[in-house]
Simulated assay, not measured.
Amino acid sequence: MSVRLGINPLTWTNDDMPSLGGNTPLEVCLSEGRQAGFSGFELGHKFPRDPEVLGPILDKHGLSLVSGWYSSELLTRSAEEEIEALKPHLHLLKSLGATAMVFCEVTHCIHGQRETPLSHSPRMSKEGWKTLIPRLNQVADYCLEQGVQIAYHHHLGTVIETPAEIERLMAETKPSVGLLLDSGHLVGAGGDPVAAQQQYADRIVHVHCKDIRREVLEDVRNRDLSFLDGVLNGMFTVPGDGYIDYVPLFRGLRESGYEGWMVVEAEQDPAVAHPLTYARLGHDNLKRFCTEAGLQVTE
């Protein structure tokens, strides 16, 4: 099986806390990401959203558009309203060859609130589930008809965070709703990436490789800290710099026939974690883990 290695600009400049790397130009992110060895980037808040503008910028660096985050509000607006809201984003992804949309329901989310601890993550009500599922199915069907599949991002601080919530989401949605498997968010929520890969092998359409520093995660939970405090304290890092074992996970992806992007998405304070150093470390470790798992990497 063949995969490609991509990176998210969070290594350089943070979307949830724009002050982190706020002065770093997009040009630096792209040039250093390519220098580190990556062949694609996900979107960030500094990326132009016109495909005719962004396309030549990426081409200049020899980079592909991997995907891009979309904030859904399906608990508070209809599927038709959501489809209208996402059309510009969908157009951008489709125009530049991305086939997966990072999709997350953000109603009541707290991951961008530094004063709110992760223990206060929102939970879905019975009515919430009844509202979300049919709307999500309708939006996912529409996107797939346009050639881009939703990759639902389970995320700390949102309504779909825990292994039980992921399980229910996958059980009740149609196959058009793909899953983004994020190793760091899953471990942070008490899950097992290898078990999740085996359970949802036929639904995984995108992979985020975020490692966890165990002692910082334990401190965040013990002191009831927020997601952003966890980021600032170094809870996340690139693959191979934490305690997640990636080779069994990648071996499972190979056995299930996964062919897509492996994306380093590991937000840290760039003033503490030098972006190019960690980008290189993440790329080299990711490539080595893929090789050990029998996954061929396409540049």
Rank of each mutant, 00 (worst) to 15 (best):
Q149V: 04
L132R: 06
L58R: 10
H91W: 13
E165N: 07
L144A: 14
A151D: 02
C104E: 05
E165P: 10
I133P: 13
T162C: 08
A79K: 10
T131L: 06
L75Y: 10
S64M: 12
P117A: 01
Y142R: 05
P134H: 02
H89Y: 12
S64Y: 14
T107P: 04
E73W: 14
T107Y: 07
W69L: 11
K126V: 09
I83M: 14
E165K: 10
H155M: 03
P117V: 01
G44L: 01
G44C: 02
P51T: 09
L156Q: 12
R77M: 12
E167Q: 13
K130N: 13
G55T: 08
Y70C: 03
K60C: 00
L90C: 08
Y152I: 00
E145V: 01
L86S: 02
H111N: 13
Y70V: 11
L63S: 11
L75I: 10
A164Y: 10
I83F: 09
V66Q: 03
P56W: 12
T162R: 14
F103K: 00
K60W: 11
S125R: 07
H153Y: 04
L92R: 06
L132A: 06
T131Q: 02
G40Y: 03
L96A: 06
K130L: 12
V159P: 03
T131G: 01
S67E: 05
E73I: 00
C104G: 11
V148N: 01
H91S: 14
H153N: 02
